[in-house]
């Protein structure tokens, strides 16, 4: 239902061209849920924004995004707006920024409910109350009349989800839905997402492997603007192939909290060869000069971008 091929997104900046997304290919089946993981700055949000064409003016974008047979790169903006409001919903990172601080949350949900539908005020209010119940608010009438700043981080995130699912979208792109939430809240958001998004496809953007593994069928690991590993969730977690995936898993407090040496390179001056080679414990001469492809080795359902593993 979603097929992204050779997607490249870059920004012109005074410092140079930032290649935030570089040749990404992803295909997503109906109801399939994939996790896009990788450290901050590797291009996850830009990827999501590229799919729904929500990018600033200094952007140049190429490649193909085909959604149910339509090429989203070429449909007119007015049509794209309809798709964004009804078929594809983007649950934005950081609810304190994306919720309107001057508007009661009920009004913000109603706005999303009305999009693409012809509902009376009464019907949309009813639907808003239902959505608030669906995201576990016991007292929807009370919550409706709150301003965002009167709600906690976890509550705001649930409001964001209510907005995200209001139009019953076919595809949900959720950007860091559990970021900075504590354990209880995180659990609640994850189970909410898995219940409410049951009939939708989902791309969950996160740097939290545990969260991705609870919800997703497949995981894509992103490093420096490109996908370095792609495979079923449980296999990636139990038997990661790419050295970056291995290091990323070991950095989790449950697995030793080991830091990856160095820091991720700038997206302006990408290293030659494999982008991970300056930080890779196993890098060889070939890794320093030749850029590896994302290829399937012994098993066709897994892909890896590495010369050595």
């Amino acid at each position: 239902m979603l097929q992204v091929s050779n997607l490249k997104t870059s920004f012109r900046t005074p410092e140079g061209i930032v290649k935030a997304v570089d040749s990404i290919d992803i295909s997503l089946r109906k109801r399939e849920k994939v996790g896009l993981i990788g450290e901050t700055g590797c291009g996850k949000t830009v990827f999501g924004m590229s799919v729904v064409r929500l990018l600033p003016h200094n952007t140049s974008i190429s490649g193909k995004v085909s959604y149910k047979g339509k090429d989203l790169m070429t449909v007119p903006e007015s049509h794209m707006q309809n798709i964004r409001g009804s078929e594809i919903s983007f649950i934005l990172q950081n609810p304190s920024v994306s919720l309107n601080p001057l508007m009661r949350v009920g009004g913000q949900i109603e706005e999303a409910v009305r999009k693409g539908k012809n509902l009376s005020a009464q019907e949309s209010r009813k639907e808003t109350l239902r959505l608030l119940k669906e995201v576990n608010f016991q007292d929807p009438e009370y919550i409706m009349n709150r301003y965002p700043h009167e709600l906690s981080g976890g509550m705001k995130q649930r409001v964001m989800i209510a907005i995200g699912i209001a139009s019953e979208p076919d595809l949900i792109i959720a950007d860091e839905p559990t970021k900075a939430l504590d354990k209880g809240n995180k659990k609640e958001i994850l189970s909410l997402l898995s219940d409410t998004a049951e009939r939708s496809s989902m791309i969950m953007i996160t740097h939290d492997l545990a969260a991705a593994s609870e919800l997703c069928d497949r995981i894509l690991v992103m490093y420096d603007g490109e996908i370095v590993e792609d495979g079923p969730c449980d296999e990636i977690l139990s038997d990661p192939l790419h050295p970056y995936t291995i290091a990323f898993i070991k950095a989790h407090p449950k697995n030793g909290c080991k830091a990856i040496p160095g820091s991720s390179p700038s997206l302006i001056d990408l290293p030659s060869g494999c982008r991970f080679h300056p930080r890779c414990p196993d890098a060889c001469a070939k890794c320093r000069t030749n850029h590896p492809d994302l290829s399937s080795g012994h098993s066709h359902h897994r892909k890896n971008r590495c010369h050595c593993h």
Binding site: E39, T40, L209, A247, A251, P253, C257, K258, A259, I260
Partner: peptide, 14 residues
């Protein structure tokens, strides 16, 4: 480290 990635968090902890 609550607003950081696990890999960056690990650097701070180290």
């Amino acid at each position: 480290t609550a607003s950081l990635d696990v890999s960056v968090q690990a650097q701070i902890i180290e």
